[in-house]
Design a protein around this nucleic acid. Sequence first.
DNA 1: TTGTAGGCGTTATCAG
DNA 2: CTGATAACGCCTACAA
Lengths: 349, 349
Amino acid sequence: MSKTTLVSLAESLGVSRQTVSNVINAPHRVKPETRMRVQHAIVESGYRPSAAARQLRTRRSMNFGIRMMPVVDGINGSILDRFLHALTEAAQEEGYRVTLFCADTDAGEIRQYEELLKVADLDGFVLTGTHHGDHRTAWLLEHGIPFAAFGRPWSSIEDPFGSLHPWVDVDGGAGTEQATRTLIEQGHTAVGFLGWPGGSGAGDDRRAGWARAMRAAKLPTDSLDIQADDGVPAGAQGAEQLASKGATAVVCASDSLALGALAKLRQLHPEQASPALIGFDDTPVAAAVGLSSVSQPTEDAARHIVAVLAHQLAGSSSPHGDEEPAPERHLLLPPTLIQRTPYSFSSST
Amino acid sequence: MSKTTLVSLAESLGVSRQTVSNVINAPHRVKPETRMRVQHAIVESGYRPSAAARQLRTRRSMNFGIRMMPVVDGINGSILDRFLHALTEAAQEEGYRVTLFCADTDAGEIRQYEELLKVADLDGFVLTGTHHGDHRTAWLLEHGIPFAAFGRPWSSIEDPFGSLHPWVDVDGGAGTEQATRTLIEQGHTAVGFLGWPGGSGAGDDRRAGWARAMRAAKLPTDSLDIQADDGVPAGAQGAEQLASKGATAVVCASDSLALGALAKLRQLHPEQASPALIGFDDTPVAAAVGLSSVSQPTEDAARHIVAVLAHQLAGSSSPHGDEEPAPERHLLLPPTLIQRTPYSFSSST
DNA sequence: TTGTAGGCGTTATCAG
DNA sequence: CTGATAACGCCTACAA
């Protein structure tokens, strides 16, 4: 019982291999009767076309590449899990496979593009963590390689005409804005922002959302804006500064910062069980300690990225087709504010 | 400037394509002089052999498959990130690529094996989360598919002769044993264990380590062994029970449980800043809240898995070879106890 | 509607 | 030590 191939199948059916191929790739050109017969034989035999042979002929691998970023902060990195899972799942459903690769730098990533395109004929790439002056998008555009980014183009350098390539992103600013508004509605008038130093696209975006909400409520923002490198200790320190400036509530650019802030605020105000504090990313940590957080629709983003990429690839090969409605090439998804109260640990038996 | 191939390269050098192929796959059979010349031309032109063509011919894809488990508990799942990264990196260094796939169940995973073997000629698989009566290992063994598992075979059902397949695992029992011993050395005589219900290989293993340490110190274990489903709330509840039984320190089977326990113990004993508590897995959460935890050498495990798998695959194709020393087929790695003190948040300026 | 011919880039086999 | 020839499994023409 060796492996079934197009030929072996055709022989055993008394048709030409071409007919079998047509049944698979262009069913409409085969007489219904024989089509049925062949299709039946296909499932019967468990036949599956060889990707290698197909790839050799068509120069398409039905394969996406995505880079594993070096693990930096496990807290924020852990949303990648969900993203990757959703991405793989969606790709699988569209008939694509996902190939992983590693690179330490963006330049290394570009080198991997070259390599993978040459040896594995990858059909496209999924980018994450786009930033100002991203060379990767420029390179891919320049070489005409299909790709989609999780993260919008943050500057006009790599994308002078705006939105040259498909991307999906989460509207971080809307998230912090909503978070801030919520705190204001709860009666806070001095809501501080604890974010990263300026220059990072996502960070500035989140800061802007906070500022918008404050302005809308005609509240002052002076000295309520703290810049800190990401991390728990920095969060604690930042929270202390904010407290000393009179802030009674804090919106953070990450759960790491928020976690530090949480501990510090509890220390400063042991009397109040749940400090007015909102993190970002809704990482498992936030859920674990009962921290409110802005949740990114990671899975939706992943699915849409696959949809865009797949559509792009399908479109270029089947020129006739207006079958599927084109998915948005640029999509800004709204995040969700997850409100929690820190665990009370009521002594339930 | 179209893509360089074996032929185009051979032509431009005035040799046969076979010679070029030999330079790549069997350098020793080519006269040093021409070999050098060809090698030079190869780097010069940036030529890379086509994986598809190679795969078609050799039936090997230089590709591993690994399943993305459905995301359950982000806390414990986040170590997967590190594992995956290390795995990909190691594979890349050995010339392999990593293909991701999804499955909701073990049966689904097996179905994917079949599919991926047929269409993509995957050379082998990496398994994670092995458990009692694992059908996956049985299937792979039965079909002679190369694979290596992160996790030992937990019962003799799927591996009646013991260790039929390569695996790498972390000695969880040694971890909890060390953790327990450490707490005993700190003066505790009633160290409780907060673990999962019996039946899971890893869980029982961790419990056994705690019991060993207690016995070795001639301390009683009665009513100090709590079984709780994984999760933060369950951890808090379990810690309460343990406290009521007189436990003064707790070793946990996971960071999730430990996190719940931490909060509960702090609530019960506000006076002591850092409860005697040790978690398991050293997840980012543990690091974030300053929780001591048993750390698994995930990266080492991943690297070794690749080494074993690659060796196995190379061995079967180059029968002459005693080049590389064979990596251990079964490896039990010792974990490390990471000792932390919960953040004090000293008001440093 | 179906069949035939050729080739995608490689490696294996077997002559020179 | 080198080169010609024949696959590997599939798809895209084109011919019947």
